[in-house]
Design a protein around this nucleic acid. Sequence first.
DNA 1: GGGTAATCTTTACGCCGTTAAGACATGGGG
DNA 2: CCCCATGTCTTAACGGCGTAAAGATTACCC
Lengths: 210, 210
Amino acid sequence: MPRPRAAPKHAYHHGDLRAALIDAAVQILEKRGEEALTLRAVARHVGVSQAAPYHHFADKVAILAAVGEEGFLHLSAAMEDAKATAGRGPRDILRALGVAYVRFAVRHPSHFRVMFSGILASRDCGSLHVAAGRSFELLLGAVLAAQQAGVLIDGDPARLALYSWSMVHGLAMLHLNGVAEGPAGVLGTIDELAEGAAEAIGRGLEKRPV
Amino acid sequence: MPRPRAAPKHAYHHGDLRAALIDAAVQILEKRGEEALTLRAVARHVGVSQAAPYHHFADKVAILAAVGEEGFLHLSAAMEDAKATAGRGPRDILRALGVAYVRFAVRHPSHFRVMFSGILASRDCGSLHVAAGRSFELLLGAVLAAQQAGVLIDGDPARLALYSWSMVHGLAMLHLNGVAEGPAGVLGTIDELAEGAAEAIGRGLEKRPV
DNA sequence: GGGTAATCTTTACGCCGTTAAGACATGGGG
DNA sequence: CCCCATGTCTTAACGGCGTAAAGATTACCC
């Protein structure tokens, strides 16, 4: 499927309808929530007929998968940023990756929700899995480096990466569900909580002197 | 709202339609997935007209909230079970609670998904929040006991409880999204992973000798 | 310049959530 | 014993949704 050209004259051929549809979907998710995300609403938002999206996406789930893929790409970028700017030791990198993960979830809740709404599990959309795998490999690389530096316990690095991921993923999810504020009082900003969580899992997986 | 009697004669009055609807919703979720959960399908499954559910639930979200509440009640029961049977030290209790959490999520994925599908965040259904709060307080109590026993670091116990919760919640969520198996190879059974995760967060939050 | 392929529209079908109005059963007061 | 008030369920209907089929419109290639 070749991408169409960029300058539509008479607006019958849109130009880059596929990207516009994804953008519209994200905007609707952010402004009006998940239940307002309708294929027809997306089409209306772009100013196109209700059947037009079917020439670019197989069905509604496919457009959600595209949103999820975009999210994973952005997440990977954010993690690489964190990795680049954090930097001294492998423990700092791991901690920065964790904080960046939570921050991404909080700043892009619509993307994040879609990324883990079950599409990953049910659908066989390959590019989504590739994008998700890329994010995981970023974390895995940091874990491996930390292991080789001798600051993390031995064991399957994928397993340690999964534990680290679980920690920050759980915090992000609970925060998005309004749980992290707790019934009474405040536990701190989500950034503080993320730092604490990254610190805790770092301590949990660190190699200790005998 | 008084519960109706138990023995309907002519099946015009169902007897306990509310409970039957919740059961049917759970069964549909387990057998045919979330997208097959339709208010009309629930009504059909019970053998009742499509408008009947509206005499027991305000709308579709309300029946989902009821499923979520049921889930939190079952979760609390499972956690109390784990607490009762685990039991030597406060660390064992905490670890058992974490494992029980993951096991519950894996054994009752439909309930679990509904419990954290955003209803908790968006809706103001009180009884759901009460049930969720009860589960959290169970964990909070164990954290407090561990702190008083001197095996957990100092600090806001609610915050430590949130970290523990995040750890196992993240693992459960990632597993339900098919991530915990990883792209290549097997990291172990989910029970093993849960034990490892509980161990890791336990180490991360434990008080160490100076 | 004309045909072929890609892109978009119109129209339609069946299902969904939800509501309004009416039918049916049940239990308490004459 | 009967009757009616109340709670419970049904029928019928509306608009919106996902999706498919078929036709209209545009762009590209020879």
